[in-house]
């Protein structure tokens, strides 16, 4: 299969919130109740199709422990999207998401797209983070929020695909080249004048 675009995505969040489980559920469609703890980072890939653009997602699934934060820049550098995961039954894990957002805004690619996933929604009874609060926060930072459950599969495909869509949207708005015909036509319609001007001056690389 020919791939039009390749996006690097990183999963970040407190330990044991389900970063690996979400990634595994998405890529392999499997859920392992007894997922192993991650040291440093794992790598997964998946090919998807959005609006006739075939996309390869390179997913870096990182370790949650605070000390590994020092290595995280290796993985979020040049990443176009970040999936920030918290556990709805664990208050602390939500604050970790907030701190990751702060760090990424300072250090990561300035066009990086965020999606926040409130994982373990199958444990609704033990919820500690009110959904409204999480959604409000996501809105505030311009991110999408998804309620997910790696166990049941709820919201998993949606949250990863949302990242891909956000990245595509951002790219088409900023006018960087996209091979898909549909996406390209949309760019030209929106910014026709700009594109023409740029072509004339010949300054675009």
């Amino acid at each position: 299969m020919e791939v039009d675009r390749e996006f690097k995505i990183v999963t970040l969040g407190e330990g044991r919130v389900g970063k690996t489980s979400l990634a595994m559920r998405y890529v392999r469609g499997q859920f392992n109740e007894k997922e192993q703890s991650t040291t440093n980072a794992n790598f997964l890939e998946k090919n998807i199709r959005i609006n006739e653009t075939s996309i390869k997602l390179n997913i870096w699934d990182t370790a949650g422990q605070e000390r590994f934060r020092a290595l995280a820049p290796n993985y979020y550098r040049e990443a176009k999207g970040a999936l920030l995961v918290y556990d709805i039954t664990d208050k602390e894990s939500f604050w970790k998401v907030v701190s990751w957002v702060e760090e990424l805004k300072m250090q990561a690619d300035k066009d990086i797209s965020f999606v926040i996933a409130g994982n373990k929604c199958d444990l609704e009874l033990d919820r500690q983070i009110p959904k409204e609060q999480a959604i409000a926060y996501a809105k505030q930072i311009g991110a999408a929020h998804y309620s997910t459950s790696a166990k049941s599969g709820m919201g998993v495909n949606e949250c990863f695909e949302e990242i891909a869509k956000l990245i595509l949207d951002k790219e088409s708005r900023s006018g960087s080249p996209i091979r898909s015909s549909k996406a390209r036509s949309r760019v030209i319609v929106k910014n026709q004048e700009e594109v023409v001007k740029k072509k004339k001056s010949g300054g675009c690389c």
Binding site: G15, R16, K34, E35, S37, G64, Q65
Partner: peptide
């Protein structure tokens, strides 16, 4: 807390450690 988070997912296939 971190140890607690990791303890039973170190060797998830081994009854002895879970």
């Amino acid at each position: 807390e971190q140890i607690e988070r990791d303890i039973d997912r170190s060797f998830p296939d081994l009854y002895y450690f879970t």
